[in-house]
């Protein structure tokens, strides 16, 4: 960890600060978000109590197409998809079933999918979108922050839009101006305005 361009954890408690640095790094790594988050600033003070995380996202991951993980071999009678990476096999099959019908999609073994040329001959299979990781990305980011924050901090406010996100949590009721007083300064430290 981490190829983040900016990663700071602040806390009045030095031991806790180091521990949270590690926690945040582990969680981002576990959830595979390191490539997605560009900058992250966390402030946590158990005396207030408050947990604030603010950050920026990198460009969104692009949609996954068949060409990204499989070879499309066109024969005279059939088209054979040679799967290189199984990660997206399940959504691929779902997609093919809806387009061509279950009776036309044959899977003789784990790494091979066969379609009759008569049914799918004309289509540009290489470019067929199988999955879009950005759909769940927002949920993943908020989940990661929820996971990093101390568990007892149940009262929270979260925001994610236009590549910026923040997450404020506390054990007590959050004051109405918490975004102005706690979140905006963190974005300023990163050289960004919310």
């Amino acid at each position: 960890m981490p190829p983040l361009n900016y990663f700071v954890v602040e806390s009045p408690d030095e031991v806790g600060r180091v521990a949270y640095e590690r926690v945040a790094a582990d969680v981002l790594q576990d959830l595979d978000l390191i490539k997605v988050v560009d900058r992250l600033h966390i402030y946590v003070d158990p005396k207030v109590p408050i947990f604030v995380a603010a950050g920026l996202l990198r460009h969104m991951p692009r949609a996954i197409r068949i060409a990204d993980f499989a070879n499309v071999n066109r024969g005279e009678n059939e088209i054979v998809l040679d799967i290189g990476d199984e990660t997206y096999l399940a959504p691929l099959l779902q997609k093919l079933w809806t387009i061509y019908g279950k009776e036309n999609v044959d899977q003789p073994d784990r790494f091979t999918v066969v379609l009759p040329a008569g049914v799918a001959g004309e289509d540009d299979l290489d470019q067929l979108v199988v999955a879009d990781p950005s759909e769940t990305l927002y949920k993943d980011i908020i989940y990661a922050l929820q996971y990093i924050a101390p568990e007892g901090f149940k009262v929270r406010r979260q925001y994610i839009r236009d590549g910026k996100f923040y997450y404020v949590a506390s054990e007590d009721t959050l004051p109405t101006d918490i975004v102005e007083t706690a979140v905006v300064p963190l974005f300023e430290k990163m050289g960004v305005t919310l």
């Binding site: 158990p46 101390p150 568990e151 007892g152 901090f153 007590d172």
Partner: peptide, 10 residues
Amino acid sequence: LARGFGKRIA
């Protein structure tokens, strides 16, 4: 614990 988290609410 069912409610062991948090410092005030534990």
